[in-house]
Write a protein that binds this DNA or RNA. Structure first.
Lengths: 206, 206
DNA sequence: AGCGGGAAAGACCGGTCTGTCTCCCCCTGC
DNA sequence: GCAGGGGGAGACAGACCGGTCTTTCCCGCT
């Protein structure tokens, strides 16, 4: 219970600008956390398992992350970058030629993702339901879901659709619903959502 | 750990001595469990809190329910009866005159539910994501969601829609998606889903 | 060669979890 | 009156939780 000597970790509060060997521990922790958290959720993975699987001492873990929640925050940020942006949005942008095609390609990408054997559901939705909308981690999940909605809205604006904000909200209802249905076993959820998404686009054309 | 789904709820005939005293305990436990589970999920509510809030001894709890999971199963069954059937399906059936109106009324009821201050999200989705689709409780949630889909399919058949099974699956995507969006704060999710539901109906008319 | 710091290992802390068991009271049926 | 059982209160077990701290070792720097 020493109240003094709080080691200032001002050298590497963020993830970028890694000085040297210490970054390897952080990277290993984040890698394991990504694996376990995205597959099994937050509450089901304890700190002891995390440090064991990443071959890191507990003190090392807490030197880099002041709490489990802060690791979860870093994980959510990584998930947004690797999954939302790279795996979904950028992939859909590459697959379509026109803005409308790029929008619809989102559900093609989702549909393929549903069929992967390592399909694990949506992290942000799961954390939101696990922790509740008032918990900081639930709030963070809501923010990342809003960020994803921003990508959809940008695509809608490129397509010249009317009311792109409302369009994006309806669009996200289809995304969330198809993800939940896929989690429940409906592998055709992507196809069904894509069909409804087409109607949504039609009704938002000028 | 017994997989026997014996849920002694409101079954008067086979109960031996003291039909009132024991039933009162079970009912009190179920009442508290319904409150706490539907508001905060399964993993966030422990047995100690359940017995304390229901004024019941721990031994009494475990005399009636062999495990916490068996109580959760009883809770899910109650939730299906009270929420799915009475609060949603029957209510929607009462509000609409024609089968199509009764279908669309589902999203009116949902929309009102989203705006209630005690809106707590969908229990079945939450349990499914909390426990995972392979866990017995996740499986039970999937079954109850399929049961709800059956109600929608029945309404679609009454409306004479084509492919009522596929219709019900698409419909449920809208329901799940709007519930998740409402959990994230979008109070207009019911309205948006209802609009898309109307297009879905149009495309399933003969 | 000697020093300092990062990291590993893990004991330890208070608390929580599900589930078992004991003790005692009180109510009911005979 | 009296036995018996249900129920309340709660100690207890064993595991696990997040988080702190000590000890030891190793590696690089001067």
């Amino acid at each position: 219970m020493s109240t003094e000597a709080k080691v200032p970790i001002s050298d590497a509060p963020s993830q970028v600008a890694s000085p040297e060997g210490s970054a390897k521990s952080v990277e290993r922790i984040l890698l394991v956390a990504y694996e376990l958290f995205s597959r099994r959720g937050i509450r089901d993975v304890g700190v002891n398992e995390l440090i064991e699987r990443s071959g890191v001492a507990k003190a090392t873990f807490y030197r880099h992350f002041p709490s489990k929640d802060s690791l979860v925050l870093a994980f959510l940020e990584q998930r947004d970058k690797l999954w939302t942006v790279e795996a979904i949005v950028s992939q859909a942008r590459r697959q379509g030629q026109t803005p409308v095609e790029r929008l619809l390609a989102i559900f093609d990408v989702l549909g393929e993702w549903f069929r992967r054997d390592d399909f694990e559901g949506s992290t942000f939705i799961q954390v939101l339901l696990e922790m509740g909308p008032s918990h900081p981690l639930g709030q963070a999940s809501i923010n990342y879901l809003a960020k994803l909605r921003g990508h959809v809205q940008a695509l809608a604006e490129e397509a010249g659709l009317v009311d792109p904000a409302g369009f994006a909200r309806s669009w996200q209802i289809l995304m969330k619903g198809s993800i939940i249905s896929a989690t429940g076993g409906d592998l055709d959820a992507g196809k069904r959502a894509r069909q409804m998404a087409g109607w949504l686009i039609e009704h938002h054309k000028a």
